[in-house]
């Protein structure tokens, strides 16, 4: 330990923080409990990136390059997924409580035509979701 390079130590710290934060993220995701405001997450993840870069600046051992690389990858990946997951609807166009649903036609997963008239007189739950990914 005593002769471990400073950069290696910083890199290990960065990797540990990144791993713990990512674990906590998945833990919250599993409970559908991610906060609306993820600023703290972004700050911590980008902090990991900074530490990872600092580790290289301070020089690491050969094996010591792995923890800071991990920290940088994780630290960039999560803010990126947050960036692409923004949902924006044209608020004035979106259907609201009190509106009558539009008439629509589509096809189901067997290729059978579907007409929304078949829903009238029934209680209905309609769920829009993103593709499978």
């Amino acid at each position: 330990m005593g002769n471990m390079r400073l950069g290696t130590k910083i890199g290990l710290l960065a990797a540990a923080v990144a791993a713990l934060t990512a674990w906590y993220w998945f833990h919250l995701t599993g409970n559908v409990a991610l906060p609306e405001d993820r600023t703290a997450f972004v700050v911590v993840f980008l902090g990991c990136v900074v530490l990872g870069v600092a580790a290289f600046v301070k020089r690491t051992s050969w094996l010591g390059t792995l923890p800071p690389l991990f920290a940088i990858a994780v630290g960039l990946f999560f803010p990126y997924t947050m960036m692409i997951s923004e949902q924006v609807v044209a608020r004035d166009a979106a259907i609201e409580v009190g509106d009558t649903i539009p008439r629509f036609a589509s096809i189901d997963d067997s290729g059978v035509e579907f007409d929304s008239r078949s829903l009238s007189g029934h209680l209905v739950l309609i769920k829009f979701f993103r593709a499978h990914w």
Partner: peptide
Amino acid sequence: LPVPATLLIGRDGTVLWR
């Protein structure tokens, strides 16, 4: 893509919850 959304619709076609 659509925005993920769930709607509850009454028998008369009115949106009751979104």
